[in-house]
Design a protein around this nucleic acid. Structure first.
Lengths: 206, 206
DNA sequence: TCGGACATGTAAGATGTTACATGATTCG
DNA sequence: CGAATCATGTAACATCTTACATGTCCGA
């Protein structure tokens, strides 16, 4: 897949490895991620296979960079990929959800502060998605790229709402766990835990 | 991560590799995926490292199976994982979205049928998520597992809605490409000549 | 002159995919 | 009897992560 993403961007015009790294971090962060090490090695591999070509470019006042262009074989590969069935869609892998899924039980487990941090990170992601305009591409006449960003924004908003509900729920059912640790078993819901605004969770035991 | 998911399920009780494979395919398909080959090799690795133990179990009338149980070291590893910060959340990787992102431009590109197939697959996924009740786990007193499924359902619903809009949009702006070409196109600033339309685009009705 | 952005790489190891392989039991 | 489901594996390969490594240029 990374191959195709790199070829996809190179179809817009010549790009350096660094350019592509920045594009992945910004323009397409909502559907893919790669470390720079992987980007550079993948570019070299694509070049060895003749899908792209590179030349060194020493711009005045700038460090030397290696600029890649799409070769004919690369354009063909991209075409082939685009003709592939769109199905067999990405099996989702969400480590944060996995953590929540298996967070259960622990008596004094401090899941809540973690969830709040997660929510805040997701809010940042949403702001970032809203702030940065899509980079317009001539090869995207139907505005598919901005539309995928709109989708990503909607997913972020949904995620934040879900986290809100989850946090509210845990606050009401588990507030006492944060004050008195070390108790396990049937902890039934106390009628009045605290106000809707809980104090910050400190570690009571030493 | 797969390590932790397997340990997480083994914390509920003894399970065979096959059990875990089924759990991944059903119970946790909404946040993770693994092939059986990876599951079996990972279990062997976890056993070599002393995190889990296994014994062969030849049930009458059934093929022999190898049943794993969580060892003390495994329980510790799970605890450590649960204490890790929840952040640095899964960098999203969505191949379908990548395909749509880079689908642009091609004059007679048949994206629409593919999108319809994708939507239908997502609808199946949603039905599946609704149909199958969450497997109740004693180690999940706060119902976090069903709640992550509820989240996954909401994401599916959102995805389907987005695909609906996208399809509608492409139908209206690109209808003339599929029909006889008589319709005037509006909206886009793209002066598209209706010239280079190939007759058939792949669906082999003879 | 120091830190941050620019810019590019290598290497080891972990993780994940695809293909190959085997064999039992159950149901129609 | 054949297909589906149960059940477990190996091997080759591709992909991805983490750490190490090296420099330049620009502004404060």
């Amino acid at each position: 897949m990374l191959d195709m993403i790199l070829l996809g961007y190179l179809a817009d015009g010549p790009r350096s490895g660094y350019d592509l790294k920045l594009l992945l971090e910004t323009d397409s962060a909502h559907f893919w991620h790669a470390h720079h090490s992987q980007i550079y090695t993948t570019l070299r591999r694509l070049e060895r296979r003749g899908l792209i070509r590179s030349r060194k470019q020493a711009a005045r006042g700038l460090q030397e960079r290696r600029v890649y262009t799409l070769a004919a074989a690369g354009r063909d590969a991209l075409e082939t990929w685009r003709d592939l069935p769109l199905l067999a869609a990405a099996p989702p892998k969400d480590t944060a959800l996995a953590r929540i899924f298996f967070a259960g039980s622990q008596p004094a487990r401090d899941l809540l502060p973690e969830l709040r941090r997660l929510r805040s990170a997701r809010r940042d992601r949403l702001t970032e998605l809203k702030r940065r305009p899509s980079i317009p591409a001539p090869s995207d006449p139907d505005d598919l790229r901005p539309l995928t960003r709109a989708y990503a924004r909607a997913v972020e908003a949904l995620t934040i709402r879900w986290l809100d509900e989850l946090i509210a729920r845990l606050e009401s059912t588990g507030a006492r766990l944060e004050s008195t640790g070390a108790r396990r078993g049937q902890t039934k819901t106390k009628p009045r835990p605290t106000a809707t605004r809980p104090k910050r969770a400190g570690q009571g035991r030493s």
